[in-house]
């Protein structure tokens, strides 16, 4: 058998080194900052290691067994899931409603409003957390000043365990609403104008166009937007750390903060255990996103066939 070298194959072979060269930075950076830390965390999770020192005895599944019997681990998982369950549906739905309004060319100041919603997204989360400590201060903060004028409070938004988690959720919701809004606005751009135009020519009302064209055509995006929103919500470390540090009395202890506390913020760091909790959080993320994807796809399919 003879191998025939076509001009196309020769061109492809000539391009191959360039393809790898241009992929190299991505491979190196992704490998160094994502793949390697993930693999290292899995390895560390099987060690009884404080984070320093030469001794790293293999611990088997001990760190995982410890996590499953650790009430604070389960507490942190509960707080994390509660934040997801409360904020994600609200964010996805409210952002959809806002996107539909902001996508209407007749709405005045639409660009200004879009920018206003997006500004908190680009603001540094840690800065927002610190500023919110002042804004929500029970003695002299502007929010309590207003409440005081109304005869309410003062409310210790971040110092009262019964209020702190809801306050953090509220700030997180406000901070990231604009991003979900942008996802929906992008999705809305995919709906062809001629379809809307055809419906209008056929005499469909605005409500009919919304329920029979816009919503069904947006349905396929529900899954991806929900998943993105869930993943963002699980990455809430910087906001919680700067607003409450997981307190008071564990009321805002999300799993990311718990991992940080175990690895760094203690006189007795436990890197191995923190890594095990990190791996479990990763597994939980996959499970939650998987479930959300399945549910969203079912919703999307139902919407699409309607």
């Amino acid at each position: 058998m003879t191998l025939v070298s076509t001009p196309h194959a020769r061109r492809a072979a000539a391009h191959r080194p360039w393809i790898w060269l241009f992929l190299l930075p991505t491979i190196v950076l992704f490998g160094a900052y994502t793949v390697w830390p993930a693999l290292a965390s899995i390895w560390y999770s099987f060690l009884n290691w404080s984070g320093y020192g030469p001794e790293r005895p293999f611990a088997g599944w001990a760190n995982y067994q410890l996590a499953f019997s650790d009430p604070l681990f389960w507490k942190s998982i509960g707080v994390t899931l509660l934040i997801i369950v409360v904020t994600v549906p609200l964010r996805v739905l409210l952002a959809l409603v806002l996107a539909i309004f902001l996508n209407d060319p007749r709405l005045p100041f639409a660009r200004v409003l879009r920018t206003a919603f997006f500004v908190p997204v680009v603001a540094t989360t840690a800065i927002i957390g610190i500023v919110m400590n002042f804004v929500l201060d029970p003695a002299g903060g502007p929010v309590n000043h207003v409440l005081g004028n109304l005869g309410i409070g003062p409310v210790d938004f971040l110092g009262d365990a019964s209020a702190a988690l809801w306050t953090v959720m509220g700030v997180h919701f406000w901070k990231w609403l604009g991003l979900t809004l942008m996802y929906w606005l992008a999705a809305l751009q995919t709906i062809p104008n001629d379809v809307q135009e055809a419906a209008r020519v056929d005499g469909a009302s605005a409500r009919q166009r919304f329920t029979h064209i816009t919503l069904p055509m947006l349905a396929p995006f529900v899954a991806i937007i929900t998943m993105l929103t869930i993943v963002e919500t699980m990455q809430i470390f910087d906001l919680v750390q700067t607003m409450t540090g997981g307190g008071p009395f564990f009321s805002t202890l999300v799993t990311e903060v718990y991992i940080y506390q175990q690895a760094f913020e203690t006189a007795r760091p436990e890197y191995g255990y923190a890594s095990a909790v990190g791996v479990l959080l990763g597994v939980l993320t996959l499970v939650v996103v998987g479930v959300a994807a399945i549910v969203s796809r079912l919703i999307g399919r139902k919407g699409a066939v309607r």
Binding site: L72, D160, A161, P248, F249, F250, A267, R268, E270
Partner: peptide, 21 residues
């Protein structure tokens, strides 16, 4: 060798003074 025990003394005190214990 001792692992940390939580809630620790400071956390118990904070929880108590904050009305959570």
């Amino acid at each position: 060798e001792m692992k940390q025990i939580r809630p620790n003394l400071g956390e118990i005190a904070q929880g108590y003074l904050g009305g959570n214990v």
